[in-house]
């Protein structure tokens, strides 16, 4: 079982927010803050989700908020290496075609 973790890594002009564990209501506010902070720092943000084994609607809401904020400020926002568990929920929420989704960090940075 992964411990919940949220880290931000700056790679030049790109900030990668890396999430691990089960994103749920108990700490999704922290995720939301991290994403919005990253968007405050730079114009290109990705959220890495390969180690996320669970995400609930409050976690999805944090991603949606980041996406909408980026769009209104002409910033770039994408999801990187989305795990199957997250993808299933994105599909259920019909958001799988709303977010830019990248297989890996290189693809995300090149976009």
């Amino acid at each position: 079982m992964n411990a919940n973790e949220c880290t931000s890594e700056t790679l030049g002009d790109y900030v990668l927010v890396r999430l691990r564990g089960e994103v749920d209501l108990s700490w999704s506010q922290q995720v939301r803050r991290a994403i919005l902070d990253a968007l405050g720092d730079t114009g290109k943000v990705g959220v890495e989700l390969s180690e996320v084994s669970y995400i609930d609607s409050s976690g999805i809401a944090a991603l949606v908020e980041g996406f909408q904020s980026a769009r209104s400020h002409n910033q770039k926002f994408g999801l990187v290496a989305v795990s199957a568990a997250v993808m299933a929920v994105l599909q259920l929420a019909r958001l799988d075609r709303v977010f830019p989704i990248f297989a890996d960090l290189d693809a995300a940075r090149a976009a």
């Binding site: 609930d56 609607s57 999805i60 809401a61 944090a62 909408q68 259920l92 929420a93 019909r94 709303v98």
Partner: peptide, 14 residues
């Protein structure tokens, strides 16, 4: 309605 992109109210829709 799930076809609109917004953050809230997903739980009941799920």
């Amino acid at each position: 309605d799930l076809s609109e992109c917004r953050a809230g109210g997903l739980g009941v829709a799920f």
